[in-house]
Design a protein around this nucleic acid. Structure first.
Lengths: 162, 162
DNA sequence: GATATCGTACTCGGATATACATTGTCCGAGTGGTGACGG
DNA sequence: CCGTCACCACTCGGACAATGTATATCCGAGTACGATATC
């Protein structure tokens, strides 16, 4: 059970967007270049985020991606949901309703115990991810980076920002 | 991000084993038949559980699988770990250390913020799964099933049990 | 000189190949039970 | 009648094929800017 690496890519990309002045954005090319990632593949993942309404896309010469709402209102779960989809990792196929010992009067209205346990566990996981916003991530990343690095980023942004 | 269906199969199979008198087991064939599942594929998954030490395998004419320890000491996480492996779903490849803005004096001893957030969320998920034992599941399943069904299971077990 | 139009450069979006992991199946290795044989 | 041996049926274990999903790339659609021609 492994998560798509697209989640990591877009999470870092969105953290970068969150560090920008509000309303501004970057093209997918720049987002990929910032972490030395494959540009075309990054673009594909950003499309998924645009479809999910996490970011807004703007076509044309000065186009690119920007956050669709304030960074404090976007959680890591929003990104996971956009890339991976909302359906749970554990999918109950109700195999308890199959087999030689299933009697006709069996009552399956009560939820499957195993299904319920996995559902609760996954809910806890989502809750944690929902509690972390892009603003949290961006400020923490900025706080930890050296002045030299912040200056380098500022210079790099000069010619990329929209 | 989806979990192998083998987890569902083996979880139900282990719940059945947990309902048996202690020390007794069933062959993979019977475990598959009980839920109308593909016998060969069920056998493959049970092998993984045997390698992980969740169940013990006994070859030969009267062989089969039985729980390696009391059902109260086996959690759903043990099963997930056996089938899916122990590595986390979110794998941090440290892309923050790549790119044009990484200065030579950058300090990456502090953990990646995004990595940390996903790690904590996943830990909560595991904790939930570790808190549910096979004994819990088995007793709850038994409590909810009708007397007719329990009788049918008893009859079916007569000729399968080891 | 101002304005409208055309061309161009740049960006997103989806369709299309490729690689890899999961799913599914089969046959060989090993083991206990059973029957036959000999004492 | 009892003990021993060989055979057989049954089970696990790992190797092998098929399928599906994630990964990776490319080309077409759309848009804004700038140059050019015209009034």
């Amino acid at each position: 059970m492994k998560m798509s690496e697209g989640v990591e890519w877009t999470a870092h990309a969105c953290a970068l967007l969150a560090a920008l002045p509000p309303g501004l954005g970057l093209p997918a090319n720049a987002l990929a270049e910032f972490h030395s990632l494959a540009p075309a593949y990054m673009a594909k993942h950003m499309q998924a985020l645009a479809r999910a309404g996490v970011v807004e896309s703007l076509r044309g010469a000065a186009g690119g991606y920007r956050l669709a709402r304030p960074s404090a209102d976007i959680s890591l779960w929003d990104i996971v949901e956009a890339i991976e989809g909302e359906e749970p990792a554990f999918r109950c196929s109700e195999i308890r309703q199959q087999g030689p010992c299933v009697t006709p009067n069996s009552d399956f209205r009560r939820p499957c115990e195993i299904h319920a346990a996995f559902g609760k566990a996954e809910m806890a996981w989502r809750t944690h991810l929902k509690s972390v916003s892009l603003a949290d991530v961006a400020t923490e990343v900025a706080r930890k980076s050296s002045p030299q690095k912040r200056a380098a980023i500022t210079v790099w942004l000069q010619e990329k920002i929209r």
